[in-house]
Amino acid sequence: MHEIYNLVTGPLAWLAWGIFIVGSIYRLAIMYILAKKKDAPSLAYMSWGFSLRSIINWLIPFNALGWRRNPLMTVATFAFHICLVVAPIFLLAHVALWDQFFGITYPVLDEKVTDIMTMIVVAACLIFAARRIFQKEVRYVSGFQDWLILVIAVLPFATGLLAYYQLGNYQVMIVLHILSGEIMLAAIPFTRLSHMLFSVFTRSYMGSEFGGVRRVKDW
């Protein structure tokens, strides 16, 4: 246990964070260079006003037309993304580790709250999976990459719950939890999870084009 635990909390943790940070900067830089080379005119049209207008309007649940079409998916999508980002950052156990390894502390959410948020993430993943299986038009466009990121995203949360409740073999579960979290971090720049990095820019692009060129709303 000591060897494995030290490996996943030591070298592998550094590696995962390194890949995440360096990989993200790399992907963003490459995308910028590519955009400048291939699509310079639209870069010139990028506007802060139209970008922010579009981002803000899409951030309000049920505001954009796209959100009104499918209420269940909208609720699931919003709840999923908020919980996915907020729960791990403000989780007591994660801050306890920052404290233990680096002496860093900051306010945390009550474990009852993060517990429910984690369940929401897992439940939302089940809804997404069901949609990919049962909804024909979604099934047709679902590929390996879509399933891959769904599995990568659900694993840290599912194993986190099991470890928290100490169901199953705890030592195996906690190692799986840490490993799957590291896989997710490292996968962000290089899978479809990269929408985490790019969504702000794609939304800005759409907002600027619709606002500045076509002069219509894009929500």
Partner: peptide, 26 residues
Amino acid sequence: SLMRAYHKQCIACHTEKKKGPLACGE
């Protein structure tokens, strides 16, 4: 802090001795 005091003292020695619990649930 009190939590850090316990965690640091207990876990540092377990790590050094390569024996004893390290993970939360242990």
